[in-house]
Amino acid sequence: MSKTTRVISVSIPVSDVDAALAFYIDVLGCELVMDVEAWPGARYVEVLPPGSSVGIVLLPQDSEIPIAVRLGTTDAEEAHDRIRASGVELHNDEVLRWEGVEPMFSFEDPDGNGLVYLEDSSDQTPGE
């Protein structure tokens, strides 16, 4: 059975990505991990706080990229099937497989909090 491996990142909504990026880097001392256009019009900016392995994703409030906690899983396909079978409504009918991105899908917990599972290729699986 697939398992959750770790928290990869947490996204937060921001009104101005550039201003937020400056704050997180210049004031909080975070380092820039990624600043890319995930698809046309969808900017994905991630910073990493000093000493942390969990990134903070700065997303415009109207972003199509989900505001969510991004979790690693050992097997995205099996996790997708298991979560769907539990009755949870998934945002993706199938696991998303985009070039250069780990297999992933999104859903919400019972309280409406956004979650994204990404197949975790790291060696940071707890308990191993």
Rank of each mutant, 00 (worst) to 15 (best):
Lys3Phe: 13
Lys3His: 12
Thr4Cys: 08
Thr4Arg: 00
Thr5Phe: 05
Thr5Trp: 01
Ile8Leu: 11
Pro13Gly: 15
Asp16Met: 12
Asp16Trp: 12
Asp18Lys: 12
Asp18Met: 09
Ala20Asn: 07
Leu21Trp: 00
Leu21Pro: 01
Phe23Val: 04
Phe23Ala: 04
Ile25Lys: 13
Ile25Arg: 14
Asp26Pro: 06
Val27Thr: 12
Gly29Arg: 00
Leu32Lys: 04
Val33Gly: 05
Glu37Asp: 13
Ala38Cys: 00
Ala38Ser: 02
Ala38Lys: 00
Trp39Asp: 13
Tyr44Gln: 10
Tyr44His: 14
Glu46Trp: 02
Val47Cys: 07
Leu48Met: 15
Leu48Trp: 03
Pro49Trp: 00
Pro50Gln: 13
Ser53Lys: 05
Ser53Arg: 05
Ile56Arg: 09
Val57Lys: 01
Leu58Trp: 01
Leu59His: 04
Pro60Gly: 15
Gln61Ser: 13
Ser63Gly: 09
Glu64Lys: 11
Ile65Gln: 07
Ile65Asp: 04
Ile65Phe: 07
Pro66Met: 13
Ile67Glu: 12
Ala68Ile: 11
Ala68Cys: 14
Val69Gly: 14
Asp75Thr: 12
Ala76Asn: 12
Glu77Thr: 13
Ile83Tyr: 00
Ser86Glu: 06
Gly87Ala: 09
Glu89Thr: 07
His91Val: 03
His91Lys: 01
Asp93Cys: 05
Glu94Gln: 02
Glu99Gly: 10
Gly100Gln: 10
Glu102Phe: 02
Pro103Lys: 03
Met104Thr: 08
Phe105His: 03
Phe105Glu: 05
Pro110Asn: 08
Asp111His: 11
Asp111Phe: 11
Asp111Ala: 12
Gly112Ala: 14
Gly112Trp: 01
Asn113Val: 12
Asn113Gly: 08
Val116Trp: 01
Val116Ser: 03
Val116Gly: 02
Val116Met: 06
Leu118Asn: 03
Ser121Met: 14
Ser122Leu: 12
Thr125Arg: 04
